[in-house]
Design a protein around this nucleic acid. Structure first.
Lengths: 342, 342
DNA sequence: AATTAGCACTCGACTTCAATGAGTGCTAAC
DNA sequence: GTTAGCACTCATTGAAGTCGAGTGCTAATT
């Protein structure tokens, strides 16, 4: 469809605009080393590219700016995969330098470092606790009327819930219940706990426990796991330094979105494995109109665990960001696989 | 020092400016009901007030704007305590409507509601976990090399740490240790644990445990509690709607500060009990130059637990915010006292 | 037939200028 | 002591003009 020359021009326009944030004119293009033809020729080609929807003018006599379609084409076909420099690699690897046992710390550090390296906003979706397998349940009475239930998973994740414990429940029953739960539920994924309690343990509990009904509901209730995994951010304010965000209204909209975690999930979830690029309105979100989101998944073994993402302006350094995410997600996956898949 | 008329004028200027965000001129002042003298008189008085440093001009021929000193005087002497309307009271009390067992939920909801009611940013400093008394320690091995230690406090707060557990430590020793810890440390404040372990338990452990040294250090290490209490925010982006923040640089500075929790602590800690107002540069923080911070403390019984604060522009509705904070902190204190002081 | 030089034209960005009006300070009259 | 009156200041607004980087089109060149 597009001639080689048009491709070249499109690529140079996108590259230049990503660098400078200024509309690109035919004259400045013609001066580039890669380009050997005159500005008039470029103007003709640009007119064609514009007609095809790959580039746009900001006003009648301005230079050209990539359209979303242009970025999309650029990302899909023109991206020259950038090799990370040693410094970047060292910095990323520093995430794993310390002996860290907790997911969260690693994840958090990843978010911080990603945003520092890119100057964009990073979003890391932590591992879904619901996949973890239960290791131990503990119930500890606090007062006459309340107790705290603690759930430890095989990955070392600890969940806890304080709940109302009617004084009518006696200690030995509680103990028995906990024993039964531990016996029967160890190794079960958190998300399946509730189901399993009702389906398989109801009978058993009924046999042994006096206050069976109350007990079951109380515990099952407190087991309603949070629907969403934890999100970590880095560089929330980095977008404020991007020249495209001079408008406070836009900024407010964007920051407001970032501060509403529940609005972020739909953006970064449900992405297939590997790198995923969503440009501008592809994100189906008005606050993201001038933003692109690049996501990558990380796993333990073959099981997808979470997502790391970079949120930047559509005029984002796609090549660099993709390389960084690829590298980090690979590292994360291998470190986590080593650590937890034994 | 100041005449009654000067006080009146200062008060009306501050009130008006808080409402309109526009410099106040002598003519518009003279039209107010409260004011019965001519604009020329007002001009004379304003000149005096300016000389004394209570008000300022933005340029030679502009109306007047309160200075920090002016706000300070206003807050200290001219504030007409505002009575909260019923709606506000209802909304605040809705925080406690549900039966909630966890501090965090209450605190979080308080932050949200405060920012909604004021349209400023709210900051709530959660209760210092370190004051809580230990209820139970549990150590649960995860793999050959790691285990998680769980600390439950009498308030239902759960802390956990994953740590490296050398394979050389055997199970019975671990159990013995945990038993000893529980026996000796229950009721001790979290912040004193470390001390107590080294001073009082070292001997005891040495007698019973083979790998005593290693064990002790591992556990004591994982007991290093986070130095700071948790912070909760509401309305982080509210400041973006304030007309004084049209400058992106200023906004960035402010938001950046808000996102660095460690920079927030010094601002809201170390305040004496009760309401505390810091205006502009009184906060000793360049990002806060045009902001005021109003804080209030809440307690259980007589023990100060945490702080609730509102961050707004210096042109803030002091009267309303102070009333809200007073009311909420009183409610928080009484609810928490009922809940936990038994 | 493709490329390029040349040129008229467009339009945002910036500057200048004058008009407007909300504000001031000062003086003199009340 | 208060106020009316007046000259003065200065931010804001809008109109007019210049500049320059850009375009599209046409005609000459390769």
């Amino acid at each position: 469809m597009l001639t080689d020359r048009q491709l070249l021009i499109l690529q140079v326009i996108v590259d230049d605009f990503i660098r400078s944030a200024q509309p690109v004119g035919s004259r400045s293009l013609s001066k580039k080393d890669e380009i050997s033809f005159s500005s008039a020729t470029i103007r003709n080609e640009m007119a064609d590219l514009e007609e095809l929807g790959y580039i746009e003018k900001t006003h009648t006599s301005s230079g050209r700016v990539p359209s979303e379609k242009g970025y999309r084409y650029y990302v899909d076909h023109l991206l020259s995969p950038q090799v990370l420099n040693k410094q970047d690699i060292t910095i990323i690897q520093s995430i794993f330098a310390e002996r860290i046992f907790e997911f969260e710390k690693i994840i958090q550090k990843s978010a911080k470092i990603l945003s520092d390296l890119t100057n964009y906003t990073s979003i890391v979706l932590g591992p879904a606790a619901s996949f973890n397998k239960l290791k131990r349940i503990q119930i500890i009475p606090l007062s006459k009327e309340s107790a705290v239930a603690i759930f430890v998973t095989d990955s070392g994740h600890v969940e806890n819930r304080t709940f109302y414990l009617p004084p009518t429940v006696d200690a030995s029953d509680l103990e028995k219940t906990v024993n039964i739960l531990n016996e029967r539920l160890t190794g079960v994924a958190l998300e399946d706990l509730n189901d399993k309690i009702y389906k398989e343990l109801a009978m058993l509990l009924r046999q042994h426990i006096r206050n069976y009904d109350l007990m079951m509901h109380t515990i099952a209730d407190s087991l309603k796991m949070p629907a969403n995994e934890k999100l970590f951010f880095g560089g929330k304010t980095n977008m404020l330094s991007q020249p495209e965000f001079h408008d406070i209204g836009k900024i407010r909209e964007l920051l407001q979105m970032i501060d509403h975690e529940e609005w972020i999930y739909p953006l970064i979830k449900n992405d297939s494995a590997g790198i995923n690029v969503k440009i501008g309105r592809e994100n189906k979100n008005s606050a993201m109109e001038n933003c692109s989101l690049i996501t990558a998944t990380y796993s333990v073994g073959t099981e997808k665990l979470g997502t790391i993402a970079i949120l930047g302006p559509t005029r984002m350094e796609y090549s660099r960001v993709i390389s960084l995410l690829q590298f980090l997600s690979k590292d994360l996956t291998s470190v986590l696989t080593n650590l937890y898949q034994k």
